[in-house]
């Protein structure tokens, strides 16, 4: 969508006065809704609604051989799909560039072993390991995709049930794994340290978080920071535009602060959450 000059100015002024178009302050987030276990045949899933942004994440697990140089580690792979439901521009291969960008940022955010310990996914050293496929489906785009995606991914991974291994039979090269049939009997992943992405935009002289679609258009430059346990896991600048060094540090600070708060809130909610399959999209 395109904004007129007047609209852009309006937004700029609002940000300067710490009173954005929808009434938030610069560090405020729009209301979020989180649901888990929507996709029942995936091992874990979550759906996050951040005002207009709607993201659905599903986690699937497969058995795979670990990389030869990392025999003790499992694998994790991200895949993002922008559905045409969001905008007609995403039809066919239209949304691919955005999808690839998202997937890459997520991969780099999860790369460090401090964020996500892949060793937990190992079954048999050098022979078998779990591979997690995290599939993100963007259903509606209302701005601030990165945050929504990262929160949804974290929630989905939290709820993921990894099948518990009962026996491993080794017969030469042939490895056979037996797991318990009952899905309740499972392992869970530790998601404390999973990174949370925050998008910080510079509009005018100030930085804001959680930009809406219109605000994204006005931004001079945007930075996405991934914060995990007080450390930065990845920093990427997105969009067009450039930032000054000091501005950059400002953004980072802001991002850092916001991310930690966000993380705390999310973890608190995740502990309480009950999977409620009967609602989903029907509410």
């Amino acid at each position: 969508m395109s904004l007129s000059q007047a609209e852009k100015t309006f937004i700029l002024h609002g940000v300067a006065e710490n009173f954005r178009v929808d009434g938030r302050d610069r560090e405020g987030y729009r209301p979020m809704e989180l649901e888990t276990d929507i996709v029942q045949h995936a091992f874990g899933s979550a759906r996050l609604r951040l005002a207009n942004t709607d993201v659905l994440v599903a986690v699937k697990i497969e058995v795979d051989t670990p990389l030869p140089e990392k025999p003790f580690e499992g694998k994790i792979e991200f895949f993002v799909d922008c559905s045409a439901n969001a905008t007609p521009d995403f039809e066919g291969r239209g949304g691919e560039s955005l999808a690839v960008e998202l997937a890459n940022i997520l991969s780099s955010a999860y790369e460090s072993p401090l964020t996500f310990d892949l060793r937990k996914l190992c079954i048999l050293k050098g022979k078998k390991c779990w591979k997690l496929y995290v599939d993100v489906l963007i259903l509606e785009c209302g701005g601030n995709l990165f945050d929504a995606v990262s929160l949804a991914v974290k929630a989905a991974l939290h709820i993921t049930q990894v099948p518990k291994i009962k026996a491993v039979n080794i017969d030469g090269d042939n490895v056979e794994i037996e797991v318990s049939d009952n899905i309740i009997d499972c392992d869970r992943l530790n998601v404390e340290n999973l990174p949370v992405l925050v998008t910080v935009c510079k509009i005018g002289n100030h930085c804001i978080v959680d930009p809406s679609l219109t605000e994204e258009q006005c931004a001079v430059g945007s930075v996405v920071v991934a914060v995990s346990k007080e450390c930065f896991s990845t920093i990427t600048s997105i969009g067009t535009g450039s930032l000054h060094e000091e501005t950059l540090f400002e953004c980072l600070d802001l991002g850092h602060k916001v991310a930690i708060k966000l993380n705390q809130t999310l973890m608190a909610i995740l502990v309480q959450i009950q999977p409620n399959q009967d609602v989903g999209f029907l509410k």
Partner: peptide
């Protein structure tokens, strides 16, 4: 029209 199936 476009028909698409989610990967999962």
């Amino acid at each position: 029209t476009q028909f698409s199936m989610a990967v999962f």
